[in-house]
Computed example of a mutant assay.
Amino acid sequence: MDATIYHNPACGTSRNTLALIRAAGIEPTVVEYLQNPPSREQLSTMIADAGLTVREAIREKGTPYAELGLDNPGLTDEQLLDAMIATPILINRPLVVTPLGTRLARPSEVVLDILPVDAFKGPFTKEDGEQVLDQGGKRVV
């Protein structure tokens, strides 16, 4: 299966998502989006395909969101996209694209929605110790 993750290696959620994809036996295309941001069209498509609004796809924490005045409700989607392209740290992560869909994997286990159900053969535990998959590779609820 093809998969692409827009990844920030400094982000624990992004690292956990990448590890889950690899645990499914998939070696994804890893795009470190801070160095290689998606095009405006790619970003807009991913946001729409993930069922998000542009505002939902903006990262506020640890970014210049407030300093740039992006909390202004009068800003259009086009203006918000411009800001995200100009300052990629504003793109919330990780965005993952597979043939089964596109998701903003926050929390990381959201990526399971777009991976093959039968891909996991064993347990998976996130960096913080939270178990996501049980011994049989089934999602822990």
Rank of each mutant, 00 (worst) to 15 (best):
G101R: 14
R106Y: 07
P88E: 11
S108Q: 10
P88Q: 13
A66T: 11
T87E: 14
A66S: 11
R55C: 04
A66W: 04
V97L: 11
G74W: 03
Q79Y: 00
I89W: 02
M84D: 12
L95A: 13
D71F: 00
I91A: 05
V97Q: 15
K61G: 05
T102R: 10
D71W: 04
Q79K: 12
A86R: 13
T102C: 13
P99S: 11
G69N: 01
G62C: 09
P88T: 14
E56M: 12
Y65C: 05
T63N: 09
T63K: 10
L95Q: 11
T87N: 15
G62I: 12
A86L: 02
T53M: 01
T98P: 08
K61Y: 09
G101V: 12
L80C: 00
L70K: 02
N92D: 12
I91C: 05
P94S: 12
Y65I: 03
R93P: 13
P94I: 11
A57C: 01
T98R: 05
P64Q: 03
L100Q: 15
D77A: 00
P73V: 00
I89T: 14
G74Q: 10
P64K: 02
T98N: 11
M84Q: 09
E56S: 15
L68S: 09
S108L: 06
G101W: 10
Q79F: 01
E67P: 00
P64G: 07
Y65S: 07
G101P: 12
T98I: 03
A86Q: 08
G62A: 09
V96R: 11
P64I: 04
A83V: 08
I58C: 15
R103W: 06
T53P: 03
L90W: 08
T98K: 09
K61P: 05
I58V: 15
R106I: 09
A83L: 07
Q79E: 15
Q79S: 04
L90H: 13
P94M: 12
L81M: 05
L70N: 00
P94Y: 12
T63E: 03
P99C: 08
Q79A: 11
Y65T: 08
L100I: 05
P88V: 13
E60G: 14
R103G: 13
M84Y: 06
